[in-house]
Simulated scan of single mutants.
Amino acid sequence: MRSVSEGQARRSSVSDRSPGARRAVLRTADGVSIEAVYESCTAGFAEDHGPAGGTAIVIAHGFTGSVDRPAVRRAARVFAQRAAVVTFSFRGHGNSGGRSTVGDREVLDLAAAVEWARSLGHSRVVTVGFSMGGSVVLRHAALHRGRTEARTDAVAAVSAPARWYYRGTAPMRRLHWVVTRPAGRLVGRYGLRTRIHDRDWDPVPLSPVESVPLIAPTPLLVVHGDRDPYFPLDHPRMLAAAGPAELWLEPGMGHAENAADEALLARLGDWLVNAVRPPGAERPEAAREA
């Protein structure tokens, strides 16, 4: 699918939403407006996590999500206890412009969010994606290795597909109907608040599993629930086997950010921060205990 602009997101200057948060409209390399929110670390480690440096976690939501969805806000709140956080709405979602290409051009949206985090002074930027966002963070890590301002320093993919066009479960067959049929796209627009592009991919983008071998030496974590109704366990196992990766198979977990409880999010946040922590640096947990 090729992205086209479908109206502009609301234009505004960066404005403070709260003492530690600000909202902005970013512009992607292909000219799409993307809404984004930056939140400072709430743990009080300004030297390591504040806007003058330290780690920022960029969250890539799943299909039909947005920056203001409760599950995304919950993840941001947990992650902000460990690092600064950037959330954003993919094209065609929320108040962002354009139309969704369901994982193709969304790599440019993530790149814009990573670049924004670095422009705020963060020396380490890591990415975590859920479902469609999981496929995007994998492809982004593979495709943006050589661009310092857009690269990620660690990547975690949660509930991500390994391959395209999967229709092996009933939820995925319903999703394909939403994406590929005119009536389905109407349901997406008015029922799911997601504007979907009406063109097929041309060319077909690099798949998640093809991306994994290109990510090393960047640290990679693959997380998947054993009760995921969309993608069975052969997907995370295929991803983890494709290159150096850590694999967490979560007992009882369903799909993506809606199924990620605070305990899992806390472990994810710790992994993301510690995967890029300089040798000898103090862990946040140790600092809090001190």
Rank of each mutant, 00 (worst) to 15 (best):
F90H: 04
A76F: 02
T55Q: 08
A83K: 02
H49M: 11
S96F: 00
F63Q: 09
R69F: 04
H49F: 12
I57C: 06
S89P: 04
E39L: 03
P51Y: 12
T42C: 06
V85G: 08
I59S: 03
I57M: 12
A80K: 03
V78Y: 07
R82Q: 15
F79Y: 15
R73A: 05
R91Q: 05
A84W: 06
F63Y: 12
H93L: 00
E39P: 04
S40W: 06
G97H: 04
S66W: 02
S66C: 09
P51D: 14
I57G: 04
P51H: 15
V58F: 11
G53K: 12
R69W: 05
T87K: 00
F45H: 15
V67I: 15
A56N: 06
R74E: 09
A60L: 05
G92L: 05
A76Q: 10
P51I: 11
E47V: 10
G65N: 03
A43H: 10
G92T: 07
R77G: 12
G54Q: 08
I59L: 13
I59H: 04
E39C: 08
A43W: 10
A80W: 03
V58C: 07
R69T: 11
E39A: 11
C41H: 08
G50H: 09
A46G: 12
G97W: 01
V72H: 03
R91Y: 00
A43N: 14
F63E: 04
G94A: 03
G53E: 11
G50W: 13
F79H: 14
A76E: 14
T87H: 01
V86C: 06
D68G: 11
S40Y: 09
V58Q: 04
V67K: 01
R82D: 11
D68C: 09
T42I: 08
F63N: 09
A43I: 08
A60E: 03
A83V: 07
A71T: 13
D68F: 07
H93W: 00
S40G: 13
H93M: 00
A52R: 12
E47Y: 09
R69I: 05
A52V: 11
S66R: 11
G50V: 08
A76C: 14
Q81E: 14
A76K: 04
V78C: 09
H93F: 00
C41M: 07
F63L: 14
T87G: 02
A76N: 12
S96T: 03
H61R: 10
H93Q: 01
F90P: 01
I57P: 06
R73C: 03
R74Q: 13
A52I: 09
Q81F: 03
G92F: 02
Q81H: 12
V58K: 02
V67H: 01
T42H: 13
T55W: 08
V78I: 15
R82L: 13
F90Q: 02
S96V: 02
F45N: 14
V85N: 07
R74C: 06
S96G: 09
R82G: 10
G54H: 10
